[in-house]
Design a binder for these strands. Sequence first.
DNA 1: TTGTAAGCGTTATCAC
DNA 2: GTGATAACGCTTACAA
Lengths: 357, 357
Amino acid sequence: MKKNGVREIARLANVSIGTVDRALHGRRGISDSTRDRILAIAENLGYKPNLAARALSVQERAVRIAICIPREIHFYFDQLRQGMLAEARSFEHLGIETVYRPTPRLGIDELATVTELVRKGDINALIIAPGNPESLSSVIDEAEKGGIRVVCVDTDAPQSSRSTVVCVDGAVSGMLAGELLGRFLEPGACVAVATGMLAAEDHRKKVDGFCRTFPQVCPNGRVVEVIEDKEDHDIAFEKSFGVFTRCKDLKGIYVSTGNCLPVFRALNVCGLAGKIKVVATELFAEMLPYFKNGTIFASITGRARAQGQVAMRLAIDYFLHGNPLPPRHLLVPHIAMRSNLHLFPEVRSSMMGVRNW
Amino acid sequence: MKKNGVREIARLANVSIGTVDRALHGRRGISDSTRDRILAIAENLGYKPNLAARALSVQERAVRIAICIPREIHFYFDQLRQGMLAEARSFEHLGIETVYRPTPRLGIDELATVTELVRKGDINALIIAPGNPESLSSVIDEAEKGGIRVVCVDTDAPQSSRSTVVCVDGAVSGMLAGELLGRFLEPGACVAVATGMLAAEDHRKKVDGFCRTFPQVCPNGRVVEVIEDKEDHDIAFEKSFGVFTRCKDLKGIYVSTGNCLPVFRALNVCGLAGKIKVVATELFAEMLPYFKNGTIFASITGRARAQGQVAMRLAIDYFLHGNPLPPRHLLVPHIAMRSNLHLFPEVRSSMMGVRNW
DNA sequence: TTGTAAGCGTTATCAC
DNA sequence: GTGATAACGCTTACAA
């Protein structure tokens, strides 16, 4: 392999490498004629700069990307973190560094943690899953003003000036659930929705999307109850148990909260497993039995790992290649059903060796 | 930012950088004591080698990855290529080079093209969408024996010794279609399947997956016809028209071929649009009207772009980080329905400005 | 306008 | 065993 670098170009053009550099980078202080001549030679030679040498020479400062998401054992954020760190690792050769500053739980201590990260001023980007978007707005604005690109993940902070957000649109999840359940059920069917807390934007959007879509798909279909469990196991069980006993003609339910197990238990207790068709959200090992026994027909997942990966990648491509950050990046939610369950890493390990899938 | 490289370590250890190098790389010709001392200092200093400098020094040859897929305007391979090239571009800093050697059409000239690429011997990896897997087996084996990692994409070449394959399992697509249609229809429903050519493994797997799953999900459900259109528009129309007129109690159809439009036209002609429930495969702009008018209930897509991206990434991570190649990487197929249609790049541009989605 | 030379941090090749 | 010193290909002062 012959070497063709600035030196070779210089030799062929009978100039010095300094002149070649000026020509190649369109710097001033060079006559048009020599520049054109040099560029022609470079082109002709198929010159491609050695980027390792360039990196070494210009000594570009490492890009530091901070991650601030809940530490919660909750599998969701674990996946999110894994996606980010795995992606970052592939680019550490190029000077991508991560700073992992988890909060103890969603929303807890996040303002303090973020503020500290931003004020310290040694990071280039901040990826955050905001638990309380409103309370973070001002510090996010401060960060952006200070040149720190803020990437929201999972949840948006729409009032802030964050650079971008990577998420699954809750409305789409809800609409998909509505469309599926609407197709699964006969016209005129009554359904219910179980949610966490309607105060949370994502939960509200899911419920809204569902309630809007279901009647469109299922003629005369009606959403007769919205159960709000406040993320509490007991409330979830009691309220759903109440609905199942009260509402005798209930045909389906959209369980739009991760706190779904109590609802399924209530179904089992009422002997309605498989009778009332369930579309759920997210996916974790404990849900497997309910897929198996036919309680859950489908579940719409938020693709935490993919979200983390994309968020990190957007930040990296922004700094490394100057790719602009899109206002938002919406992922296509995945629909988990019995047929494709084995493809989801969230549950694959739990399915090992289990027959009859 | 303080500089801590081999030089700094050498200074602190009162040795030369040569000795530091010997210690760091476990080379021979150094006493245990000094090595340990140096390693301790390095550790303490949090020494991280500058990989740009290393690359420059060892002058590692660029990794060349060849891409051999059909050039076909067919949107699918376009997406596949885009995914690969976009991914490769992000790593060109690290010496990833691509060689794009398209074939005129699926299967056409591919043996010659691949053979030439392999014999030329200047590539490290080959990503290929095999049209005739069997005929390629020997040249793939030759490539692998010669140290070229072969990555199949979209379709496997199972008899060969290819390193890995990235694809959507046709069986899963078919099973998902069966599960969906089985849930959409009432017990005892009769359905049909339209496919391209059963000789193609992917098509066969889709049909098999569907036929196996549908009756499991839909009690007493039956697959009454399998239409094989040989990828021909007219055959597709005539055969499906025949089935629709002949089989009066047909309730659903799984159109498992990209050549789906003739089938939809036949449905329209028979006035059965929306009456016979359709699950399709893949997604392109011309299918939009059939989603809109309620002909297509869902379509299961092969995620060409994601496949290309993952295939390229696996190859890159193999060379750059020594990550082992998994025997295969199965992607979760996407299910396109009205609610999430706007998230698919394949059709988004065609939906611009169109109301009522 | 052009040329020269000194780095960037690592690896490799000598000589001691 | 160890220590100098020369690449690697590019950028960038500074000199001409």
